[in-house]
């Protein structure tokens, strides 16, 4: 026998797979997330316990362009995903052959990037002969709330707020969701990024505005709160962004001083006011006493504290994931995939 042949033989592991339907709190799911600019792999046990959650951010790659470049993102996923999966298994002290299912984000997201994660997940599942689960990214964000609090459950109203999405959802049960409202134009995170770029702040702009707003006066400038007093749960942010631009231009034209800190604080306050009001308004009609604040912009300190205060006043239980679970991550994909096995 030639050198190399036995050395690389596949592990002869008993592959007695559980019959479909026999999923329990021991079920191990590998999650893969490649929808945007984070490459992530995670192993989650029983849909609740995170054994590993490896997140490789591409932030620096896109920084020089001032925004995410799809082709750059797709290339980076091809390079980062295999090491991320290897590390996720290592940290979870598991092998591929311990897995009961493999879940990957199928969308929404960047098509070229999604393809990388789906191709790898399907391949792993094919070899292991376990189910492959195609997960909706927005649905998965809801599960980030279930991962941080052992007693968090559906039904709940959720605000899914990120660079790409702004949605108010009534999560009735696993797999049963009603979209109550969303943005008519820019997503909240997009508005943050656009305003930050206009103000000349570093990419990504959201965290920069959040940081500066702590140094400014949120009542300094009265930016409009579009749709706040209208019925329904939709929001609109393009007008707000334009008001910021007009304000700066006007100040410059009249030679008056501009405080970036005040602009950041006042802009952020406008977003928080609208978003908190709209979300809280959805809680009572939905007949729930739970609220999930999830997605990348849920990391925003103003939104976190604004929502916490409103929930406390209305006696609503609020769940906000940790910073790591607010950003795009594979643990929420694995948890959502686990729920799909039911």
């Amino acid at each position: 026998m030639r050198v190399g042949e036995t050395l690389w033989a596949s592990p002869e592991v008993a592959t007695e797979k559980k019959p479909v339907g026999e999923w329990d709190e021991e079920t191990l799911v590998l999650g893969i997330e490649t929808s945007c600019d984070e490459t992530s792999a995670s192993v989650v046990k029983g849909g609740r316990q995170i054994l590993s959650n490896v997140i490789v951010s591409q932030g620096e790659l896109h920084g020089e362009y001032g925004g995410i470049v799809p082709e750059v993102a797709a290339r980076a996923h091809v390079e980062a995903l295999s090491p991320a999966i290897g590390e996720a298994l290592l940290q979870a002290d598991a092998t591929f052959w311990d897995l009961d299912a493999v879940a990957a984000t199928r969308g929404p997201g960047l098509v070229g990037s999604l393809l990388v994660g789906v191709a790898e997940a399907k391949s792993i599942a094919a070899v292991l002969e376990v189910p492959f689960l195609a997960v909706n990214h927005l649905e998965a964000h809801l599960y980030s709330a279930l991962l941080v609090e052992p007693d968090a459950t559906f039904p709940a109203v959720a605000l899914i707020i990120s660079g790409g999405h702004t949605l108010i959802v009534h999560a009735v049960n696993h797999g049963a969701y009603e979209i109550l409202g969303g943005t008519l134009d820019d997503a909240a995170g997009e508005a943050f990024d656009k305003v930050a770029r206009f103000l000349g702040l570093d990419y990504p702009g959201g965290p920069e505005i959040d940081r500066l707003s702590l140094l400014g006066d949120p009542a300094a400038i009265r930016f409009p709160r579009a749709m706040m007093n209208e019925p329904g749960f939709d929001v609109s942010y393009s007008g707000l962004k334009t008001s910021v631009i007009n304000y700066v231009r006007k100040q410059e034209a009249s030679g008056e001083a501009i405080s970036v800190e005040d602009i950041a604080a006042s802009f952020q306050q406008a977003v928080v006011d609208v978003q908190v009001a709209k979300t809280m308004a959805a809680v009572e009609p939905a007949g729930v006493d739970r609220l999930f604040l999830v997605g990348g912009v849920a990391a925003n300190s103003g939104l976190r504290s604004g929502m916490a205060a409103a929930c406390e006043a209305a006696n609503v239980k609020l769940t906000v994931p940790t910073m790591e679970l607010c950003t795009d991550n594979a643990a929420m994909i694995a948890a959502c995939g686990r729920a799909m096995l039911r």
Partner: peptide, 22 residues
């Protein structure tokens, strides 16, 4: 073609990694 290459390479990598073959 970029997209095709990525699907091929990603699939091959995942198969090799799972099977732990070179």
């Amino acid at each position: 073609l970029f997209s095709g290459m990525r699907v091929g390479v990603a699939t091959a990598k995942a198969l090799a990694q799972t099977l732990s073959v070179p």
